[in-house]
């Protein structure tokens, strides 16, 4: 099956098995090294990518579903300016707090932190009366959202600290720009 899609800003065309998982397409057809797992749908959470700006587990997306869509992997965070700025915020938060995800889950966790921070900031902007210090995710829903990554290198306390730190750094940056 011929599939055309945009991966990390590049328009690509492949001839693929129609039910090949996206995680294997990225590893085998694009030689991406930042996707380091193919758990065959066991939800290890280490193959997280953005499909049309929504996070998905790439091992659960068949090739025929990516036709005409935009895929953003961690490579975008390294190469594209817009994402690189976001990565800098996250890196700064890791540095400030002295907490870092392990090498296995670094890419997936970073994408997930970025996505959750964007939701938190959007919710703060939607509701001006909403106390900006309050968390739109209660503990239970945060545990649920983070449970997609099975790696145990971070606990909930670390996650909350990091999310809060990224939010502060990002809001400051956006505030400076505007």
């Amino acid at each position: 099956m011929k599939i055309e899609c945009t991966i990390d800003g590049k328009r690509l065309s492949f001839s693929l098995n129609s039910n090949k998982p996206l995680s294997l397409v990225l590893q085998e057809n694009c030689d991406y090294t930042t996707i380091n797992a193919h758990c065959r749908g066991k939800n290890c959470g280490l193959c997280l990518v953005l499909l049309d700006n929504m996070p998905v587990l790439s091992c659960m997306v068949p090739a025929f579903e990516i036709h005409g869509k935009t895929i953003t992997t961690f490579e975008s965070f390294l190469r594209i300016k817009y994402f690189n700025r976001k990565l800098n915020d996250i890196e700064k938060a890791y540095e400030d707090l002295g907490i870092r995800p392990c090498d296995d889950c670094y890419t997936s966790r970073t994408i997930l932190f970025d996505y959750l921070t964007d939701i938190i900031i959007a919710k703060n902007n939607e509701q001006p009366s909403f106390d900006s210090g309050a968390e739109p995710f209660n503990v239970e829903s945060l545990v649920k959202e983070m449970s997609i990554i099975k790696c145990t290198c971070m606990d909930l306390h670390d996650v909350r600290q990091i999310l809060n730190r990224i939010r502060i750094i990002r809001e400051k940056r956006i505030g400076r720009r505007s």
Partner: peptide
């Protein structure tokens, strides 16, 4: 696809 893609033999075999 959340169920089909979690089957161990979905790819490359004829799991479907």
């Amino acid at each position: 696809g959340t169920y089909i893609m979690t089957r161990p033999d979905v790819y490359p075999s004829r799991a479907t």
